[in-house]
Design a protein around this nucleic acid. Structure first.
Lengths: 147, 147
DNA sequence: TAGATAGTTGACCTATACGTCAATAGGCGG
DNA sequence: CCGCCTATTGACGTATAGGTCAACTATCTA
């Protein structure tokens, strides 16, 4: 159980990871990671048949998970990742990149509007609950705040 | 097609809505709305067997859709809605409300961190693409920004 | 050399969130 | 009164995102 294999040649952050290491590290299952690979979101190299993830693979996977936390589908996350490693060498490609990047930005800005609005409302709920709990104050029906 | 039924007694915003009106109005399908009802997210009244939505039902449905845009599951949205119409009259209930409200707030704040980080990165991609398109400048590999 | 351990693929299973379609019922307009 | 339009329920289908399990293989260790 102890002793991280004859791995750590030196110390320092490890250069490579197995699926299971990465899974535990990032709080997902190995199955999920393999699934993301099958869907083309990541592409770790292989040593024989065994997947070998380097730091870039790990960073990319973290982007996937962040996308998930933001509520995007894997297909959508894939498009998003394409923005990071798109071909920047040709004008046409670059214009397409710019276009879809701007689309994404707008989408995320709209999402932030929703997010902030929701936060404001929940903070209002919180303040109300605190106020009533502190003793003074009628419990206020939420209907009155709705219009 | 024209003439909004003998509805509009006067003018002013309508008092009631059918599923289909509401669906078109909010850009979802009637099927989805019925599904949300089946899952207990909304509870329109009935005229005979026909659903009748009032303005509060409509507002509640908009909350559901906002929750969806933020990436929450219907189960999660349901818990969220419970925060709005929880029983505020008893101390114990109120304390529970306060607790789960705070949990939600923290969750949303974490999400906003992710959101802002993503926006920053995409704006960087945008700036880079603009810069290169304006003629001057090597296309920069995204790898150099990754560490 | 024989397990135990970690990894692989493939097949099938599951939950969520609806879409689609069929059969049916009720209102209203000519 | 009849047909059309709207609405309802029920059943089944589908896409997404994995979970679960079986059968196999490679490797390390006692």
């Amino acid at each position: 159980m102890t002793g991280a294999a004859p791995s750590a040649r030196r110390d320092a952050p490890p250069e490579f990871f197995s699926v299971n290491q990465l899974a535990e590290d990032l709080g997902v299952t190995a199955r999920a990671i393999r699934f993301y690979e099958a869907k083309g979101l990541i592409a770790p190299r292989r040593a024989g048949t065994t997947r070998v993830f380097d730091r870039r693979d790990r960073a990319r996977l973290m982007l996937v998970l962040r996308g998930k936390r933001l509520g995007f589908s894997l297909a959508s996350i894939r498009e998003f990742l394409d923005l990071y490693d798109a071909d920047r060498s040709q004008g046409a490609q670059l214009r397409l990149l710019l276009e879809s990047t701007r689309g994404r930005i707008q989408e995320l800005e709209r999402q932030r509007v929703d997010l902030d609005q929701t936060l404001r409302e929940l903070r209002e709920v919180e303040r109300e609950a605190e106020r009533v709990l502190r003793g003074r104050g009628e419990p206020r029906s939420p209907a009155e705040a709705a219009d």
